[in-house]
Design a binder for these strands. Sequence first.
DNA 1: CCTGGTACCTACTCGCGAGTAAGACTACTC
DNA 2: GAGTAGTCTTACTCGCGAGTAGGTACCAGG
Lengths: 211, 211
Amino acid sequence: MRTEGRAKRLPRAVRERQIMDAAVDVFSRLGFHSASMDEISEVAGISKPMLYAYLGSKEELFATCIRREATRMMEAIATGVEPDQEPDVQLWSGLRAFFGFVGENRASWQVLHRQASAQGGPFAVELTDMRGRAVSLVAALLTQSTKAPATKLEAESLAAALVGAGESLADWWLDHPEEPAGVVAARLMNLVWMGFGNLVDGNVWHPPSRR
Amino acid sequence: MRTEGRAKRLPRAVRERQIMDAAVDVFSRLGFHSASMDEISEVAGISKPMLYAYLGSKEELFATCIRREATRMMEAIATGVEPDQEPDVQLWSGLRAFFGFVGENRASWQVLHRQASAQGGPFAVELTDMRGRAVSLVAALLTQSTKAPATKLEAESLAAALVGAGESLADWWLDHPEEPAGVVAARLMNLVWMGFGNLVDGNVWHPPSRR
DNA sequence: CCTGGTACCTACTCGCGAGTAAGACTACTC
DNA sequence: GAGTAGTCTTACTCGCGAGTAGGTACCAGG
């Protein structure tokens, strides 16, 4: 029994999952360019031609990773958010779900946010797409709840700022992992709902009575 | 007179500036990895060995670009901000300066923000450094003006969120260049100072009486 | 007019990594 | 047990781009 020998024969679907997992791991650690197909294949416990046979080129592989992780994240948020509630509660539940997802899945988050946004090329499409969905969601929340008729552009840019604040705070969180997810989420909630103007006066937002 | 011949002899300092300008241009268009030293040298109107003679390796060159552009930006902000004013006015002037800088200097902004943050390596240092200075600035503004004694971590994370919101909104702005800088800045000001909670009720922030 | 120093070049080396050719092993079917 | 479909491998090619060796033009000062 050699320790390094021919890999056990496995059905394609299983191998593809293993490869994707390895790819997300390596891409998130090294970034798109510094990651080599050799390393990914090694981590996946498989030889390089399998990569190409199953997942196509390096770019396709990366794009597939982005798509998979983005979908996972959007589903996590969609599951967590509570519709038919007051706007602030909807936002709050969305933020909790977002930071919850990032808390587990650090690798996914990194490959999603840092890497994809840097490669201007074909990947930006996947990322921009997901980000666009998130922005639209927030923008809709805003538009629907506002009394003053805001322009589409205005709502969208505010939503972009909010999403950016979330991403950035999540990045910051990576460097301060000791903070619990709920605390970080609550902070952002306070910032965007109450504003500094209120916070400096000691007025904070808090969730409605516990269920 | 050949169109492509030996370059005119110029003193080192001048050439270095030209090279840096070319490097910022190319890096911001293509990103660190996709940019080649050959292309940079071509844009700079010079041959490759000059690059290495003057600016060292590719990594050194990139780091130097980051440092230069980051310094320019921080100086622009420092110049624009009005100390000894109310916190909201300080923040407002800072935001205006920031978006003003980004509005001109699109290339600088891109090379700064998108590229550097993606290459985890030695460059993150430069970028993290500048970002850290910005965050500290905002955090200090917050701490100094708040009545409720906030923890250091709290102020810092809020500042990180704000800086991130600014960066993200600036990114968004790149895709909607028709908006004037002041409008974009005002939107972010409203978001972070008033909060959505106020905005949906139509309460907006506006600067104190014109000087 | 030589001597050195500085700006500047052409023309390489050389490693790394994406992608492939060609086949070997396994398992299922008839 | 022969065909065939799918899994998996070793061992390459090949271009691109970082970095360099070894010069050439130009300008001081002696």
